[in-house]
Amino acid sequence: MSAVANDGGAPGRTIPPAPPTSDSRTFARGVQDLIEGLRTSELWLHLGWTDIKQRYKRSVLGPLWITIATGVTAVAMGILYGELFHQDIKTFLPYVLLGFIFWGFIETTVLDGSVVFSTNEGLIKQLPAPISVHVYRVVWRSLIIFAHNIVIYAIVFAIFRPPIDWSALLVIPAVGLFVLNAIWVTVVFGILSTRFRDIGQLLTTAVRLVFFMTPIIWSAKTLSDVGDSGSSKLKYVELNPMFHYLEIARGPLLGDHVEFYHWGIVLGCTAVGWIAALLVMRNFRARVAYWV
């Protein structure tokens, strides 16, 4: 509705209404996008499963190739590095295998999440859906691959019988934290990589580097067994957040006691990551469709 004002020189002059204020750059809209995307679960569940089927289309074994590839690599690395580091194969092979399984989830989430929007340009521009749908799609797809790979542990468990007890159930909240972190990682790197395409290449290099810096194909316990110099090196290992993520997930399935500070560090990283994700959603969510 327009207003009528009298400024003395132009009686009856019409003043146009103020333009409506946009709320697209608010935390509320970012949170709403995440909630609405979660509610459209049928869509991202279907898209994620379709991605897996398309990847192994016309393949005889289909998604079983995921399990075979991970199993062969983990067993080969476990035997090789077990001999090099003089480790007991009965304990070292399950250690390496679980490291590969959980690291595979992390790596898949980071690398696929960094290109989730740039590789789905058509869907983003044509499908009227929250952008978080594509985030959940990546996380769901990573969970499917993880579920295929965890079958290998069941086989290794039947062979080597690691001394686990009821504390093994701690792997459930650990996987829950992995999922929560996967969501914020996909949001942050997915949106930023859409704007700055070099970030995706940097992440690929960084993931490969962090793999060798993380106790996956080598054990942190070997450092603590070599005296004072090993203890100082272990402190450097603990500066790597991925070490703590693997500890809370791998330890319970190996029968190891997981110190509480590992959980504290992971919870801290999760909180910081979600704050970053909300900031990115608040500032750049509406621009993704223009950047792809």
Results as ranks from 00 to 15, higher is better:
131 I>K: 09
107 E>G: 05
140 W>N: 01
121 E>A: 11
155 I>W: 04
108 T>K: 11
176 G>Y: 04
140 W>L: 05
124 I>Q: 05
167 S>D: 12
170 L>M: 15
114 S>C: 14
153 Y>E: 07
121 E>M: 08
112 D>Y: 13
170 L>D: 14
110 V>F: 05
114 S>K: 04
153 Y>M: 13
115 V>E: 07
182 A>P: 12
165 D>G: 15
113 G>Q: 02
173 P>W: 01
151 V>Y: 01
153 Y>H: 11
150 I>M: 09
152 I>A: 00
147 A>R: 08
160 F>R: 09
115 V>N: 09
176 G>F: 13
118 S>K: 12
147 A>H: 07
109 T>S: 07
178 F>H: 05
176 G>A: 07
112 D>F: 11
166 W>C: 05
137 R>H: 06
145 I>C: 09
124 I>S: 08
176 G>H: 03
166 W>L: 14
132 S>V: 10
135 V>Q: 02
178 F>D: 04
139 V>S: 03
174 A>Q: 00
122 G>Y: 00
119 T>Q: 11
178 F>P: 00
176 G>D: 02
138 V>K: 02
173 P>V: 01
163 P>D: 11
108 T>N: 15
180 L>F: 10
172 I>G: 09
172 I>A: 08
161 R>D: 11
169 L>E: 06
163 P>Y: 06
144 I>K: 07
110 V>Y: 00
111 L>G: 01
112 D>P: 09
161 R>V: 14
171 V>I: 13
164 I>H: 08
146 F>W: 15
154 A>W: 09
167 S>T: 14
147 A>W: 04
167 S>A: 12
108 T>Y: 15
146 F>A: 14
156 V>D: 02
169 L>Q: 05
122 G>I: 05
181 N>L: 10
149 N>F: 10
150 I>P: 06
180 L>I: 15
181 N>R: 05
154 A>D: 02
136 Y>N: 05
135 V>I: 10
160 F>Q: 07
122 G>W: 00
148 H>T: 09
157 F>W: 12
113 G>V: 06
127 L>E: 10
157 F>D: 03
145 I>N: 13
148 H>L: 12
182 A>L: 10
139 V>E: 01
159 I>S: 03
173 P>R: 00
169 L>W: 09
123 L>R: 11
172 I>E: 06
129 A>P: 02
175 V>N: 01
170 L>E: 13
125 K>I: 14
153 Y>L: 11
162 P>V: 12
174 A>F: 00
182 A>Q: 12
141 R>C: 02
150 I>Y: 01
171 V>Q: 03
137 R>Y: 07
161 R>Q: 14
119 T>I: 11
107 E>V: 08
130 P>G: 09
138 V>C: 03
132 S>G: 07
109 T>Y: 00
118 S>D: 05
107 E>Q: 12
175 V>T: 02
139 V>K: 03
161 R>P: 08
177 L>T: 04
110 V>R: 01
133 V>S: 07
162 P>S: 11
127 L>T: 15
111 L>Q: 03
127 L>C: 14
145 I>M: 13
145 I>T: 15
168 A>C: 07
139 V>T: 06
180 L>E: 07
119 T>E: 08
177 L>I: 04
116 V>E: 01
117 F>I: 06
134 H>Q: 12
181 N>A: 07
179 V>L: 07
121 E>C: 06
114 S>M: 11
166 W>Q: 11
154 A>Q: 04
121 E>Q: 10
126 Q>W: 14
175 V>P: 00
180 L>P: 12
130 P>K: 08
174 A>W: 00
146 F>K: 13
164 I>Y: 06
